[in-house]
Amino acid sequence: MTSCHIAEEHIQKVAIFGGTHGNELTGVFLVKHWLENGAEIQRTGLEVKPFITNPRAVKKCTRYIDCDLNRIFDLENLGKKMSEDLPYEVRRAQEINHLFGPKDSEDSYDIIFDLHNTTSNMGCTLILEDSRNNFLIQMFHYIKTSLAPLPCYVYLIEHPSLKYATTRSIAKYPVGIEVGPQPQGVLRADILDQMRKMIKHALDFIHHFNEGKEFPPCAIEVYKIIEKVDYPRDENGEIAAIIHPNLQDQDWKPLHPGDPMFLTLDGKTIPLGGDCTVYPVFVNEAAYYEKKEAFAKTTKLTLNAKSIRCCLH
């Protein structure tokens, strides 16, 4: 018999989150649709729960009410004593943790798909938090293969000092899905179709896995975050240069030392320094102006996964 890495157990509980950011409308629209008619997301033997994560922000069509829901799922915020004085999103995070967690427990949901849009030209993107997770690498390989020839990129946010504390991190297997470009507060049919297909293929993978299909060893190309880059700023902290036209919409493309990065209003080009080629992502993302992030630098690498098969009882 072929030796293989056996994944822990079959997958039982899956959640699909929309509206973690209330103005990213593809996930909101799909989740609302699936709450009314969820036939397309159901798979035999699998509990799939669509869920609106930040209903107040969705109602106002804004990213958040008090603070970013997708950055506060750490033990400090989840452990705060519940009171009306807490920011709305912290209270909501505790409610979500109660419903789908608790985080880092045996009772937490197996998989959470968190649906997002970006204003950046990132196409279909899967966000991975753990480079050693054979199950998710296999799932992402399946999704990428199923979507081809449509490109699907994998963004690895594993980093020693950049801690995200994402909404989906309460699950055993957290999956971020990011599709763009799409303006905030807008629905685009092409973007919706791409996100819908990503979810379909992900659920198909889980179904095949649960039925005992063995997935042979595989490898995927990923883009691992190195650092986030702020806009150049003046002495008052105001933005002093904008994304250069040569960099705009060039997510995932190589940016070499000396290539144009920013452009000042008086026409001066600010190039990339250093001696390493990087791959920019979230270029000129609207939501990241407040976070002082013009783009993120990534490096390209390959992740390998062992063969996996479900432990059938």
Rank of each mutant, 00 (worst) to 15 (best):
I199W: 00
L46W: 05
K59D: 15
I112T: 04
A15G: 12
F135Y: 06
V179P: 02
E9I: 12
V175L: 03
N304R: 09
E129K: 05
K197F: 09
A171C: 09
D114P: 00
Q12N: 13
Q248F: 02
G38P: 10
F51V: 07
K13W: 04
K49Y: 14
C4P: 14
M122D: 02
A287L: 07
K297C: 15
T145Q: 09
I206E: 00
D234A: 11
S105D: 12
I11V: 12
F135T: 03
D275H: 15
T167Q: 14
I191M: 06
P245M: 03
S108D: 09
Q182C: 06
T118S: 13
T44K: 10
C61Y: 09
D74P: 15
A286T: 09
E9D: 13
P181Y: 03
E235K: 12
P232V: 04
Y64P: 05
F29N: 09
E76N: 15
A240Q: 14
L247T: 01
N133S: 12
T166G: 09
Y279G: 01
R43N: 04
Q184V: 10
V278Y: 12
C218R: 03
I157Q: 12
P181H: 02
R132T: 12
G27Y: 02
I143W: 01
R132S: 08
K163L: 13
G22H: 11
L247A: 02
V222W: 01
A7S: 07
L247K: 02
P271N: 12
P160E: 10
F113K: 01
I52F: 05
I127V: 09
Y173F: 11
F205L: 01
K292D: 11
E293F: 15
K80A: 14
S120P: 01
K228G: 12
N121W: 03
I11H: 05
T119C: 10
K306N: 07
E129C: 06
P245V: 01
L128C: 04
A148I: 07
A171L: 03
G237L: 04
T125D: 00
I191Q: 07
K32A: 11
K213I: 11
K268N: 13
R91S: 14
P216S: 09
P216Y: 05
V14A: 07
N77G: 11
E158D: 09
V278L: 05
P151K: 15
C67P: 06
R309V: 08
A241Y: 02
P87F: 14
I270R: 04
D68A: 05
E106L: 13
P55G: 07
V48W: 00
L46M: 13
L30R: 02
H33M: 07
T299M: 12
M198V: 15
V222G: 05
E40R: 00
A294P: 02
N97W: 09
S169G: 09
T166C: 07
D259Q: 14
R56N: 12
L78Q: 13
L78P: 08
L265R: 12
C218W: 00
L69Q: 07
I127Y: 15
R168W: 08
P271R: 15
I308A: 04
I239H: 04
M195G: 10
Y288W: 15
T298N: 01
P254L: 04
F29C: 14
N284V: 03
P216L: 06
A296M: 09
A286S: 09
G274Y: 03
L75S: 14
C61D: 10
H141N: 14
L46K: 00
K60D: 15
D68V: 04
A7Y: 09
C276T: 13
K297N: 07
M82P: 11
D68Y: 04
T298V: 04
G79I: 15
G22F: 07
A202I: 02
N304E: 12
P160L: 11
E285T: 09
P50H: 02
P55Q: 10
G258C: 13
V179Y: 02
A305M: 03
E158R: 04
R91I: 08
Q194S: 12
D110S: 05
T20K: 02
A240H: 09
M122T: 14
G79W: 10
H21A: 14
N121F: 04
F100N: 05
D85T: 11
T277P: 13
H10P: 13
Y142W: 12
I96D: 13
R56L: 13
G273K: 14
E293Q: 09
E9G: 11
L150D: 14
T62E: 15
T44I: 11
H141I: 02
P260N: 05
P245F: 02
E89W: 04
S83V: 10
I220P: 01
P174E: 08
R132H: 13
I41Q: 01
E214W: 11
C311E: 14
C311T: 08
V90S: 10
E211L: 10
T166M: 07
K291F: 08
S161I: 15
K228M: 15
C276K: 14
L303N: 02
I199N: 02
L115C: 14
D251F: 01
L147G: 01
L69V: 10
M198E: 00
P102T: 15
K32I: 03
K172L: 04
D68W: 03
G18D: 01
P87I: 07
L203M: 12
L30Y: 03
Y153P: 09
P149D: 06
K103V: 14
M139P: 00
F209C: 04
V48H: 02
C152S: 05
